[in-house]
Nucleic acid binder design. Structure first.
Lengths: 139, 139
DNA sequence: TTATGATTAGGTATAACCTAACTAACGAAG
DNA sequence: CTTCGTTAGTTAGGTTATACCTAATCATAA
């Protein structure tokens, strides 16, 4: 049994490697290999909220509003987000992700997609069913 | 087919989630949730080399020697590494990982192991064979 | 006119790097 | 066996950038 565990380990290492390669490709496609984990987390936070304002983001991330302004200015320089004024209330600005911002926020997700696509290409329908059946059992 | 892809995606998301939970557990077991990606990469570099010295690490990481001294002092404060003088040449110091340092360097690896262990517990031998057979086909 | 949302100004702390100068230890030459 | 050049690591001191903050200001809404 130990032997099988080892084998399974190698197989999964391989899959994770493929996934990481995909993430890296996506990040370098955006020309942002040096982005910090925190920055990516912030972009994700912006993505998850809809219609997020500066005050709201300050609340969520537990930072002061000037910190958020600074952060957003940086993201604007990086072309990841833009400001959109609320049509009903001129004081409010929404923070929106650009295509590039979305790409980064979804990078992990998309890397996963690419690996799955590779699977779909490598496996037949029967194997897919088997795989789904087996992996569903793991909790 | 689209439907199966979606299904497979969910199944894998679940596995990755389990793995990430494991990594987080391992990091917080070390009381170091705020470690940077770079620091972990450096610990891994120390782990991969054997008998690594300050000069060698400066070479590998393309930093100056004072930078390495500073970095190692920090890791010593974090109780991740210690210095060991070379018995044959008093000028040379080896950088060694403590148990905590090793734990961090191997965190990803160990998280993977835990997930595999969960698989081994959830699946019978036949299912394991099937799984290995199927996943090996993905390249 | 007061409250609210965002920005600006100005400041602090720390990280992550650097060069130059120093100390300790080795090893070969005289 | 001393001395001198070399090597390994450290210290001192500096730079630059990041990531935060408070207080004050500006624009808009109610």
């Amino acid at each position: 049994m130990m032997d099988k565990e080892e084998h399974l380990f190698e197989v999964f290492e391989n899959l994770i490697r493929i996934k990481n390669e995909c993430s890296c490709t996506i990040f370098s496609e955006c020309g942002l290999s040096d982005m910090t984990v925190k920055q990516i987390a912030y972009l994700k936070a912006i993505d998850e909220q809809r219609e997020v304002t500066f005050s709201r983001l300050a609340e969520i991330t537990r930072n002061s509003k000037p910190t958020i302004t600074e952060m957003i200015n940086k993201f604007v320089r990086m072309e990841c987000v833009y400001r959109e004024r609320c049509p009903d209330d001129g004081r409010i600005l929404y923070i929106r992700l650009t295509d590039k911002g979305k790409k980064i926020a979804h990078a992990e997700h998309n890397a996963m997609r690419r690996v799955i696509e590779q699977m779909v290409n490598s496996l037949d329908e029967h194997e897919m069913d088997l795989l789904i059946g087996i992996l569903q059992k793991v909790r």
